[in-house]
């Protein structure tokens, strides 16, 4: 290495100067934050009530249970599992539709340039409040009126959907290109006509896309809602987990995984087709 370094010096006539590299940028705040977070994490690990010694044989335990569940799943339970899954998917679908119907006008009112400022702020506050509450808690509140039925699940998903769909909706509306809106206004269009012809044609693909995405979320969430007893695959899963019938639990998990992935793939393909258009038309 020294030979390499000295070689150019003989060529260059100017006297060699010591090169001082620029000082490393100092970021005192970053250091403070890093140290604080590290301390916090250490404190949390130290204070939590978990017997860490017990985690040593955890992998072996989990492997044993996985073997119990999946070595010989109870295939004879699959028909009933599919029926319960259908109940869950129904909840997801009805909840999604109700959420769309309610959130659709609200998201327009919450968008800048359409709704009046007080309405807009109130709606945005409502959306973020709803989003902060887990759907299972919403379901617990609603079930005092509707009882332990799939309807409760659907309503809980609808309420929760208003929070997310409303937010995505006004974001999509505010993200459209202003040109067509100005064109409609210049042609003397009313506020309603601006929304119909200036905004909606641009925002429609995005709306349909996140409606489908919300359905995918609902499919997962509806399985969870079963845990409080509103029916569906989650209900069945908790019962068999409590009886510790592991082969049945394994079969149920397989059904959940396959149905969820199948719905995700279908919905994802439709969403891509809507937002990106068909491949064949691009070639033509």
């Amino acid at each position: 290495m020294t030979a390499l370094n000295t070689a150019p010096r003989t060529v260059r006539s100017a006297p060699a100067r010591a090169i001082t590299p620029p000082a490393k940028p100092r970021r005192p705040w970053r250091t403070v934050i890093t140290v604080a977070i590290t301390l916090l994490v250490v404190l949390v690990f130290w204070s939590v009530k978990v017997d860490w010694a017990r985690t040593a044989n955890l992998p072996a335990d989990i492997a044993r249970y996985l073997w119990l569940m999946f070595s010989n799943p109870a295939w004879d339970r699959v028909p009933e599992a599919l029926w319960q899954t259908w109940r869950s998917v129904e909840m997801a679908w009805v909840g999604c539709l109700l959420g769309i119907v309610i959130s659709f006008p609200l998201s327009f009112l919450a968008a800048r340039g359409i709704g009046p400022a007080p309405v807009r702020l109130a709606l945005r506050g409502l959306f973020s409040l709803i989003r902060a509450v887990p759907e299972i808690v919403i379901a617990i509140v609603i079930l005092s009126v509707t009882g332990l039925t799939p309807l409760t699940g659907a309503l809980a998903l609808a309420v929760n959907g208003i929070g997310t769909l409303g937010k995505w909706g006004y974001e999509a509306i505010e993200g459209v290109h202003p040109g067509p809106i100005e064109a409609v206004k210049a042609a003397g269009g009313s506020r309603w006509q601006t929304v119909r012809w200036g905004i909606w044609p641009q925002a429609a693909p995005e709306f349909v896309s996140f409606w489908l995405y919300r359905f995918e979320i609902n499919v997962r969430a509806s399985a969870v809602l079963g845990l409080i007893g509103v029916g569906g695959i989650g209900d069945m899963l908790t019962s068999y987990t409590q009886y510790r019938e592991w082969p049945t639990v394994g079969a149920l998990l397989i059904v959940v995984i396959i149905v969820t992935i199948a719905i995700d793939l279908t919905s994802g393909a439709i969403r891509r087709r809507i937002t990106e258009g068909s491949k064949a038309r691009d070639l033509a």
């Binding site: 299972i136 997962r220 969430a221 399985a223 969870v224 845990l227 989650g234 899963l237 908790t238 987990t241 998990l253 959940v256 995984i257 969820t260 992935i261 995700d264």
Partner: peptide, 9 residues
């Protein structure tokens, strides 16, 4: 594909 609460259960 499996929701967190089902894992927990």
């Amino acid at each position: 594909a499996v929701p967190d609460l089902l894992y927990a259960a």
